[in-house]
């Protein structure tokens, strides 16, 4: 029960931090983000959240002296990154989606080229 409550709060915090970053309009330090969040969260909490978001690929950062400045990643990029992670987690065995063609082992390349020429002759 407690764990679920904590997880929900973390998700909320991540959303709030992302919203604050978007609202800022320019790359922000953790301190600036914390101020936007009306100071209710501790500085370390905000910083940990930003690091986590960065690991998830939802924010990018650049060095500014001794601190980092964070900015939200483009929405489509973020969505693609999220999907990539979720699909990586699902693994090859139970993959949700099927590609048109899979990875080709190098030894199959000449075989495929020959078959393509074959097909072009028949076309």
């Amino acid at each position: 029960m407690e764990a679920r409550g904590q997880r929900r709060a973390r998700g909320d915090l991540e959303r709030e931090v992302l919203a604050a970053l978007s609202a800022a309009g320019a790359p922000s330090t953790p301190g600036e983000v914390r101020e936007r969040l009306d100071g209710s969260a501790a500085y370390t909490t905000v910083m940990t959240t930003l690091v986590r978001l960065h690991e998830k690929g939802l924010v990018s950062r650049e060095r500014d002296g001794r601190a980092h400045r964070y900015r939200p990643v483009d929405a489509a990029e973020a969505a693609a990154a999220r999907m990539r992670r979720a699909l990586e987690a699902s693994g090859q065995r139970d993959a949700v989606l099927a590609r048109f063609v899979g990875d080709l082992p190098p030894e199959d390349v000449p075989v495929l080229e020959r078959l393509l020429r074959d097909a072009e002759r028949r076309g």
Binding site: E77, A80, A81, M83, R84, L87, E88, A89, S90, G91, Q92, A95, L97, A98, R99, F100, V101, G102, D103, L104, P105, P106, D108, V109, V111, L112, E113, L115, L116, A119
Partner: peptide
């Protein structure tokens, strides 16, 4: 065949979809 060769020709340039775990083994193409 052409789609398979296109994919094989540019392995480094897959962008966001590189590590996406989509099904479709290589041996299947041939």
């Amino acid at each position: 065949a052409r789609a398979g060769l296109v994919g094989a020709a540019a392995p480094g340039d897959r962008g966001d979809w590189t590590a996406v775990a989509l099904a479709g083994g290589g041996g299947d193409v041939v």
